[in-house]
Design a protein around this nucleic acid. Structure first.
Lengths: 216, 216
DNA sequence: TCGGCATGTGACCAGCCAGTCACCTTGTGA
DNA sequence: TCACAAGGTGACTGGCTGGTCACATGCCGA
């Protein structure tokens, strides 16, 4: 976390790179990776198409993966910082309720990023290119591992049912994804109001923590 | 359900149509819709490319949607027949455990269909084409509605916690999808053994029905 | 002020593929 | 057996787009 010392040239480079990634995220999220054209990305970024290749030698796909890197890093960061700062005395259910609400809010705020992942990640994860599939498995693993830590801890402490923490981490992320797909405002067909972090967190927490069976 | 009376010509047409759809499913599932080529589909189906257009006037996209129609109809059918034939005295938890196991087994058996949906449905659901997005919302709605019926009934009977049955239906489908993504054998990176219906049903049922909080 | 280098640029190219259509094959009815 | 209709076929084409590169621009050091 040392303050980075950058030449003016390097700073400008970073600013331009940022502009290109922002433009690409917007365009890819809207059209989908394969239908989007680099001409459109370049136009939106207000650069010539050739310039994109000065910043991302690998071309279209390199830009996509740079975006994926950022999106996944954001999520991992969200998980780690949330569980670092949460007070350890709060009831486990509350802690995770808060986590779910924050994650939903985070993804709603970055709806372009969520859309990009929803549109492309599954396809890439099942890609025939070994490398691509491995990349996604690795990223998913990072997320699951980060989330499994606090889950495991709670299980040790006896405040969560003892089971496969890793599996539970995956299912939790899946539920958040599922809620966003369910509640995402898709044109006029939105089944509910636009996704609301509090509503989503309540729904997921009730189902996952309290269970579907009635309790007295 | 009346026995269909078909001329020999019509029967042959259906057989050919079937072969084309089978070939398309295989190719689309493997390459992804946009990367797959009609030449490859035609070759695999052992027909000339032009013939595809005699059967699917709408071209590539028409074939894709014909496949979607079948896959969704299969799932709705699975839901309806399962809950029709299940004996009403079985404990609710068991009933749904069985349902989850059957659904997982069904999707594992038709892994091409699952792969196709995983790769394409999200992208199409968020498509800019109003029509495509509406199609997917409609299909998802059909599934959720079919599944909401037995859930609603169990809530009425007091054997399930009273909450939004529709939302619960969506989350249940999302969990099954999530488990398959989690457990699907992706090359040598498979985190577990290939998805096992019993294992998946146990995991999902424990989380959803019993809840993550420990009980005595 | 000038020369040269780093970097932006967009016209261009080559490959790809959905969709077409003129032609051929097959089967049927007279 | 022949003529014709129905329908299969795949070479072809038009449009598209990722990636390239020769040139333009402008910044910096001498």
């Amino acid at each position: 976390m040392e303050a980075p010392v950058l030449s003016r040239r390097d700073r400008e480079r970073l600013v331009r790179r940022r502009a290109m990634l922002d433009a690409a995220l917007t365009v890819f999220a809207e059209k989908g990776f394969q239908s989007a054209t680099l001409d459109e990305v370049a136009e939106r970024a207000e650069f010539g198409k050739g310039t994109l290749y000065n910043y991302f030698a690998g071309g279209k796909e390199a830009i996509l993966f740079a975006l994926f890197d950022e999106v996944y890093a954001d999520v991992v960061n969200l998980i780690e910082t949330y569980f670092e700062r949460v007070e350890s005395e709060r009831p486990t259910r509350d802690v995770f309720h808060g986590f779910i609400a924050e994650t939903i809010a985070h993804l709603v705020e970055r709806s372009d990023a969520f859309m990009l992942m929803a549109k492309e990640a599954h396809r890439m994860a099942f890609s025939e290119e070994r490398e691509n599939a491995a990349y996604f498995l690795g990223q998913r693993e990072r997320i699951a591992a980060a989330l499994a830590l606090p889950i495991e801890k709670a299980m040790q402490a006896g405040t969560l049912r003892r089971m496969d923490a890793h599996g539970v981490a995956h299912m939790l992320m899946g539920n958040i994804h599922g809620y966003l797909m369910y509640a995402c405002p898709l044109g006029e067909h939105a089944p509910t109001a636009p996704p609301d972090a509090e509503h989503g967190a309540n729904l997921i927490t009730t189902i996952l923590f309290d269970g579907l069976l009635p309790r007295d």
